[in-house]
Design a protein around this nucleic acid. Structure first.
Lengths: 208, 208
DNA sequence: ACCTGAACACCGTTCAAGT
DNA sequence: ACCTGAACACCGTTCAAGT
């Protein structure tokens, strides 16, 4: 017999989809504040469950962080792919790369706490959470493909693609994380135009 | 009358230089592990003092972190200045910039925990710790001076210096922090040669 | 002036028990 | 199978007291 709980949407003794509910609550909690505020106990409280119940789905706090990060990588990847699809088909390689860079930093600046969880700490030190690595590999592949295409069409320099990806990623990640900690003081409304300006000279270093 | 303590170098009831001792212990603690392991209580324990004594010198934990960060900014600045002085006087602007970039990422990779404290979180949110900002401003000035000099001598493009500094800093900070969390898997022995390769095409984007 | 000790409200994590 | 409650060893921070 289902019974009503006053605090949550839970109708039964068993939650049903506790894992997803916890991740969702964690993301909401963290975006309302900061990664430091994310605790297993607070997340459980929000879902309306004893904090011990979370251990059914996450071996420890790091596992919850990894789940939040995974969720973030998925969204970041979608944002990057989305940025490419809205471009006119005759967009040059440098324009496509710039669009990717802008999508990247926009994602990061709009969800700074999530971004910090994704990149602030080594989460997969002991090799659990391999879906995390798969998603990163997909993002890497996306960038590598763009750079390779630019080389094939004769627009980009013949440097090893791996190094170009590293440089491009360093540039966007650096900009994003410096903006998040406000070492780079970028007004949100100017983020797109300004990041274009900043990336411009560096990306043009890839052209020949 | 001074009395001997078995656990520390302390000879008197009053420590003498507790503040510095705490910062030093914090730096050692953190480099032996990670920023997460840094607690006010553990640092106090290492210095041989009640954890409450630390509050005489630091209003809260963030103040201790800020002191560690400040110490780090000083060393980073020294490393960057040092890198320039060892260059031959006829080194071109791009070479000088590359030397700065290499010194920067070397510092970060060699003391990852300290670097994470310096750049992982907003420490000066409420405007205490303004020496922190002064040190950052000095590093900024160093970079801006180099870039401006390169423009004056006709080596670098005429982009606004501010944007060039942002791009350069994004590149080095991005590389450093991705290397620290092992998203970029750089072997320490190859750090210098590899970072040169990665930065090369991007820095050449500044030349004309 | 500087340091200590007890207390409070939090953590993450473990163990034994409930439904 | 899944969830709870009490307990443990930690935190940061506050208050009242010691030297």
């Amino acid at each position: 017999m289902p019974r009503r709980s006053s605090k949550t949407t839970r109708d039964t003794y068993h939650h049903g989809d506790l894992r997803n509910a916890l991740v969702k609550a964690a993301v909401e909690l963290v975006e309302g504040s900061s990664p430091e505020e994310l605790t297993l106990r607070e997340v459980s409280r929000r879902v309306g469950v004893n904090h011990r119940a979370a251990y059914r789905h996450f071996a420890d706090k790091t596992a919850l962080l990894a789940a939040v990060a995974e969720d973030g990588y998925r969204d970041l990847l979608a944002a990057m792919e989305g940025a490419l699809t809205t471009l006119p088909s005759r967009a040059k390689p440098a324009e496509r790369l710039t669009a990717l860079a802008v999508a990247y930093v926009t994602f990061a600046v709009d969800q700074p706490a999530r971004y910090r969880i994704m990149f602030g700490r080594r989460l997969n030190e002991d090799g659990r959470f391999n879906t995390l690595e798969d998603l990163v590999a997909r993002a890497y592949g996306l960038l590598a493909g763009e750079l390779r295409a630019g080389q094939v069409s004769g627009h980009f320099t013949e440097h090893p693609v791996r190094e170009l990806v590293f440089g491009f990623w360093s540039l966007t990640h650096g900009f994003a994380s410096l903006a998040i900690v406000r070492r780079l003081k970028v007004k949100r409304a100017l983020l797109e135009s300004w990041s274009r300006e900043v990336f411009g000279p560096f990306i043009s270093g890839l052209s020949r």
